[in-house]
Each structure stands twice: as C-alpha cells, then as structure tokens.
C-alpha cells in the first residue's frame, strides 16, 4: 500500500515539474525583452527543477542519492539568483532599456542617484 502511494505522489510531482519546466522554456521564447525572459527562466529553474528533484527523491528512497539530489537543488537555489542578478546588471550597464509600462524609480528613490539608469556614465570610447 505504502509503496504505491509513494509512487503516485512522486509521479504527480514529476509530471507537475515537467509541465513547469516546459512552461518556463515557452516563456523564454515568447517574452519580448531580456528582463522579462529572465522571469520566465526562473520559473523553470526554481519550481520546475524543485518539483522534478522532489519526485526523484521520492523514487530514490533515503540513500546517498537523496542527499546528492538535495545538493543539486541547493546549488540551483544559491546560484540562480547570482547569475540572474549579474545578467540583469550587465544588461542595464550596456544601456539595454527595458520595455516598461510603469517606471517608479524616480518617484521612490530617496537618493537621486540610486534609481537613475546609468546613462550618465558615458563610457570612454576605446
């Protein structure tokens, strides 16, 4: 009885994870600019990968494999924000303007420099 229940739960987790991975990849293709594509990519990197790995853990039982899968999940959760932040910052630095329907940076920044796009730093033409 119990193995069957675990099988059903892990199959459901793997199916849901597969769905979210594909949805995230579809979003990467559909979205209009770099910044919005990052949002779509993070769906498949967090929820899709998390559900898939949770399903694999239930299939593996409690062995060393479980701990390795948890390490992979931890690797995703610690490196994904670092890469996304670096990518967004580099894109903004290269003056790639995001498509915006609402820009509240100048209203909300107390320090006037903080919210400005970094256009004022003219790069030396080398």
């Amino acid at each position: 009885m119990m193995p069957l229940l675990i099988d059903i739960v892990s199959w459901a987790l793997i199916a849901a994870g597969s769905a979210f991975v594909v949805i995230g990849a579809v979003g990467v293709v559909r979205m209009p600019d770099v910044y919005t594509r990052m949002h779509a990519a993070s769906v498949s990197e967090t929820l899709g990968a998390g559900l898939l790995v949770a399903g694999f853990i239930l299939q593996a039982g409690f062995t060393l494999v479980t701990l390795k899968l948890l390490f992979i999940l931890g690797l995703f959760f610690f490196t994904a924000p670092v890469v996304t932040h670096a990518l967004a910052q580099a894109a903004l630095h290269e003056d790639i303007e995001p498509v915006l329907s609402d820009d509240r940076r100048n209203d909300r920044a107390t320090d006037t420099v903080a919210g400005q796009p970094e256009k004022t730093n003219a790069r030396p033409s080398s």
């Binding site: 769906v43 967090t46 820009d103 509240r104």
Partner: peptide, 29 residues
Amino acid sequence: IWEITKSAWAVSKVIVNPKLPISPTMTVV
C-alpha cells in the same frame, strides 16, 4: 519556498495566457 510556489504559479499563468498580459515595472524598495 511557499512564496516561490505562489509567484511561479502566477508567472506561469501569465506565460500560458495567449494575450501575454505583462506590465513590466521598475521600482525602488
């Protein structure tokens, strides 16, 4: 993890919506 699940569900609904109802916003918190 619960926050991630909620917002991932919301973003997935935006992605599969044929009209793609996004309203990108920049703000300072």
